[in-house]
Design a binder for these strands. Structure first.
Lengths: 123, 123
DNA sequence: ATTATTGTATTAAGCTCTTAATACAATAAT
DNA sequence: ATTATTGTATTAAGAGCTTAATACAATAAT
């Protein structure tokens, strides 16, 4: 499994995003057990402290639940997850459109470009 | 003019992006004079060294030309600018679509969401 | 000629992020 | 009961980014 971390942004931030994606996409099903901090850290080739920091944030956000010595699980609150997923999608969409418009592309141009890229990706 | 810099990523990186946008959108016309390092730094509330670093990168990329003691100008190579702009757009589009698909949205769902957001933004 | 402005370079300090090396308490597994 | 595994906390070191305070050479402006 490739974590694909880059040095241009804090690692712990990228870890948070990666794990969020795994939850949203269903790779980590609701209620399932998460590997231990040490295992996750080793899997991502990252220091346990850094992984711990990411997990603490995910727990703060409610996506992950800690059971002390039993390890962590993904939340079972499907509504919460769905809401968080949609919120994140909205943010991505908005920031993307904002960037494109700042570059000088019109709304119609953006739609055309997106459609073209989607066709490319279907091949 | 708001530079709107955030502490989550290196400042010099954000400066590069902002100035690129100003070139691509035409706010800095081709061939026009750029303010001095010190003026730009003061305008962005940033240390001159940091602005210098951003400008050096833009010069390396060919978007900006340095004339020693006469200051800097935007390149006059319209084709080069257009190419750089399109390349950046492709990167933004691809990364956006990649994120959305990793989150579990289908291509069709993405198109629908984008259209909805564009309608919102027209209001 | 003198002055001001340009880009550029250097050195030091402070900050955050990351890694490393541990250690501890709680509890599941044996 | 003992052992292993869990999350958690601490301290120290190093790396990169940023600011600060200068300094210098080249040249435009006066």
């Amino acid at each position: 499994m490739a974590w694909d971390l880059k040095p241009d942004r804090p690692i712990y931030t990228q870890l948070i995003e990666k794990i969020q994606l795994k939850i949203f996409s269903g790779e980590y099903p609701l209620g399932s057990n998460l590997p231990s901090v040490r295992d996750l850290a080793s899997e991502a080739s990252v220091n346990p402290n850094t992984m711990q920091r990411a997990l603490a944030k995910l727990e703060e956000d409610g996506l992950v639940v800690t059971h002390r010595t039993k390890g962590r699980t993904i939340t079972e609150d499907a509504d919460m997850v769905k809401q968080a997923k949609n919120k994140l999608a909205q943010i991505h969409i908005f920031e993307f459109l904002e960037k494109m418009q700042l570059m000088g592309f019109s709304k119609d141009e953006v739609l055309v470009l997106i459609s073209e890229m989607l066709k490319e990706m279907k091949k």
